[in-house]
Amino acid sequence: MQKGMLRPLFPRKFPHIPVTDVAGEVVEVGSGVKDFKAGDKVVSILSQFSGGGLAEFAVAKENLTVSRPSEVSAAEGAGLPIAGLTAHQALTQVVGINLDGSGPRKNILITAASGGVGHYAVQLAKLGNTHITATCGARNIDLVKSLGADEVLDYKTPDGAALKSPSGRTFDFVIHCATGIPWSTFEPNLSTNGKVIDITPTASTMLTFAMKKLTFSKKQLVPLLLSPKKENLECLVGLVKEGKLKTVIDSKHPLSKAEDAWAKSIDGHATGKIIVEP
């Protein structure tokens, strides 16, 4: 578990904000590091509990750090770790899609599809054999369609609020990236064995999850607990390199204006990722 020093794209200024996504250049490595050396360009995910990425320098573990090829900019790479890995885990491990397009076709709903996790989820789902229904704000409908969604709902319209597929489909899986939508809204739109994957589970999520299990319901609410893996981050970086995945960047902020970036994030209406640069 040796560690190396990285010069990240995300500098740290706020001690209680666990920024965990970094991309930058290795400036020093620990004695046990085998795969990296000073000068290497990398993408890394830091501890979800302590963060540390909003800094001029950050300490990262080798087993959660991957090489960043020249085709992937630091900003693109910095957006990937938490959001991209969340989308990847939900789709490949829970939904079970194959990113090569093989396997049975699935109908998927992605809520908040223009957000950090949502915009990656749309692109990754499109690589699989899926029909994608997505929700977002009216201003982002064209963007979400361009990322691969087959049909897009404005979440403020009656059909959008009710999660009704324009083509009348029911959903085998929902990648739920929004908040505040009750189970009663999802349930009538699910297929017989449909599942809602909640990427930000709350106490209410866990209660519904337990109740559905106890009552042997075929329709399930699944809380997603992220388990970051190096090979999955390598997969995402590789897809960006190949032009099959992109990081949509909402805005970039210098370290001296990091508080503006955080305020924009808290506002909850960013399109894609917010980047802080040194």
Rank of each mutant, 00 (worst) to 15 (best):
A149G: 05
I274Q: 05
N232L: 00
Q2M: 08
A75N: 02
D267P: 03
L99N: 04
R7Y: 03
L207I: 14
R68Y: 06
A23G: 08
N140Y: 02
T247I: 09
V26D: 00
T200K: 05
A125G: 06
S47T: 02
S146N: 10
V240H: 09
V43L: 06
R169M: 10
G79P: 06
E62Y: 13
M1A: 14
T111D: 06
C235R: 07
L46G: 02
A60Y: 02
A113F: 06
S251W: 03
V43I: 13
M1E: 08
A261F: 03
L147V: 10
T92D: 00
I266C: 07
S191P: 03
L190R: 05
K3S: 14
S227H: 13
L245Y: 07
G52P: 04
P201I: 07
G79Y: 06
P11E: 02
V122C: 02
W262H: 12
V248L: 01
S70M: 10
G30W: 12
A83T: 15
H119A: 02
S265D: 04
D142T: 11
K219Q: 14
D250N: 15
P254L: 02
N140C: 06
G39K: 02
Q48T: 03
D267L: 07
L153R: 00
E76D: 15
S227N: 11
D142E: 15
R139E: 14
F10P: 04
V33K: 09
K264C: 08
T170R: 10
K213F: 11
D21W: 13
T202K: 06
S265K: 03
K13R: 15
A162K: 14
E28Y: 11
A125Q: 05
G101I: 03
I110D: 01
